[in-house]
Nucleic acid binder design. Structure first.
Lengths: 342, 342
DNA sequence: TTGAAAGCGGTACCAG
DNA sequence: CTGGTACCGCTTTCAA
């Protein structure tokens, strides 16, 4: 059982008294300031160790010091994508000796996090009307979304990887289940994508389209569907695709959960995966490896992206120069859900 | 694209000036204190609305006020169990107008969270040697672990539900894959469990043992295995069970991930689930419903447990009386992984 | 009903 | 090298 009483909060003065110096000196020691005699420093350090003193981050922040807290804002805790990114962020924060606090987008006011932390990492930042726009944190970097310093995966390259894998297997009828997108139709917007207005959906579609083209294949509009990244939408869109008079023999699905939904739907329709239908996902979430058949998918280095995000944030907080992060490379993970067509 | 500049932090004084009152009055209005003339209050409210002012939680805490932040300490972000609890906690916090921040056990010093929040919710608190023991927060309640106010599920009842379901289906050879436990052997400790030293593993085993007994069935020691809640351990222990000369026809598995591992192992061994082997899990994580075959499992109301935890914490923080939470009831969710033996 | 003063636990700045 | 002083943004206490 845990003890019940909060140990009366220690202050700088307590430590100072114990060490026989002024509070200021203790502060200086803690912050590694130059010009403290070694003997003094040691005495202070000892006092800190003996008392178990910890600086109060609130007071520290208020007084204008750095607080070594960085925040992560994530849409939902139980979204595997975000979990992976956070996992990477945790590791990096630990390495850099920063505390990491995470908040869900919904939970309370974002301004709290702004005021609590020296910088915040946005995971899939909400688009336009979000309150985020009013109370902005000191530093923002984002994973998979817009910000000053976006950490994005190479969506185009990833899509190419997927399609080329399928092409290499001998598939010629390849469907595409895209993720949600602001624009009414990916196809209609194909042109716009060229003009700089890039997002995940656009880029992946561009990879699909161009890979098909360079293999001399025609893009069939009815082979392109839109889901919303849920398993259910994967199943629903797959059903539409598979009930086409001339159904695809392979599917590139813009998300692992949707891909799983597609596979289950195919099975319900009496198809064998991968014998009758090959499916490639996107993300490589833990569930991709755990599924049966295990999912062939395009891997995003999500943990790495989270880690890099934190590193940027810390650099920013410490006023070190930072470069714009380059797109992160994808990898094709070949598992059991793809094979040559019969 | 998001704006780049942090809006110069507004203070109480800014608002006060705008409203033509003293900072104190603004503070009083914000905190709903009595004795502010309605006209004055309105002017202040307007000023707040116009400026978009938000109290600084750091300053508020430092000054001794309540800070309406509560923290959650979770082992890992990507553990579905914890995600569910947090999801519930988020909802409750939102309802109660508290900000919720979550930290991973590993990430930085726990004392930070202590100092940041008015109370903390521990999810599966680490056992003995943890640093938690030294710097304790003002208030602690825990989900699935020891604390002054533990929110625990009725593990015994849940196990009974599972076994009775299997019994009802006609199974008589029922294996049990238990979770990790401190003691060397669940069976050896069966007696100890009676004497008050309860934990999840004990309680579930007790449910297994007693349900078997009351059906007149004998408990076979070789039918009881221990996993560590991972899919892999589920597969490994299931393999041992299924390769017994007289293998069980049904498995009660103390965790959904392990249950899935067991199912996949059975399939690899050429068994059909549920025709040749029935499997019941525990938890009812999202993956249970998503799996093929969908997993029959004992549902823990994890989100509810998280929500209740937050409610307790808030009550504690606001010095309202709280009662010890009663064990949460379980439900059997019958899906596709169980059937009568052939 | 309102406001002035003190102080929460630190850090910045500058004096000793 | 060390420490005094002011002040961060807010709430408490108490006087006006």
């Amino acid at each position: 059982m845990l003890p019940k009483t909060t140990p009366a909060a220690l202050t700088l003065d307590d430590v100072a008294q114990r060490a026989g110096v002024s509070p200021m000196t203790v502060s200086n020691v803690i912050n590694g300031k130059q010009g403290v005699r070694d003997a003094t420093r040691q005495r202070v350090l000892d006092a800190i160790a003996e008392t178990g003193y910890r600086v109060n981050p609130m007071a520290r922040t208020l007084a204008g010091g750095r607080n070594r807290i960085i925040g992560v804002l994530t849409p939902q805790m139980n979204q595997p994508y975000a979990s992976e990114v956070v996992q990477g962020a945790v590791g990096a924060a630990q390495r850099l000796d920063y505390a990491l606090i995470v908040m869900m987008s919904g939970s309370a006011d974002f301004s709290v996090m702004t005021q609590l932390s020296a910088g915040v990492l946005l995971i899939q930042p909400p688009s336009e009307g979000h309150p985020l726009r009013t109370h902005l944190p000191p530093h923002v970097v984002s994973v998979d979304g817009p910000s000053e310093y976006p950490c994005m995966v190479d969506n185009y390259g990833g899509a190419c990887l997927a399609i080329q894998h399928l092409l290499g297997l001998g598939h010629t009828r390849i469907g595409f289940i895209s993720g949600l997108q602001a624009e009414p139709s990916v196809i209609a917007e194909a042109g716009a994508a060229q003009s700089g207005q890039r997002n995940d959906a656009h880029e992946r579609f561009r990879g699909y389209r161009e890979s098909l083209a360079s293999a001399g294949l025609q893009l069939l509009p009815e082979y392109v569907q839109h889901g919303d990244f849920t398993k259910e939408s994967g199943a629903a869109t797959a059903q539409r695709l598979l009930q086409l008079p001339h159904p695809p023999t392979a599917l590139f699905v813009s998300g692992d959960a949707m891909a799983l939904g597609a596979i289950h739907m195919a099975q319900d329709l009496g198809l064998h995966v991968p014998k009758d239908l090959s499916v490639v996902g996107f993300d490589d979430l833990p569930l991709a490896a755990a599924a049966r058949p295990a999912l062939t998918t395009v891997r995003q280095p999500l943990q790495q992206m989270g880690a890099v995000g934190i590193e940027l944030l810390v650099a920013l907080a410490e006023h070190r120069p930072v470069a714009l992060p380059a797109p992160f490379p994808t990898t094709l993970i070949h598992r059991e859900s793809t094979a040559s067509p019969v």
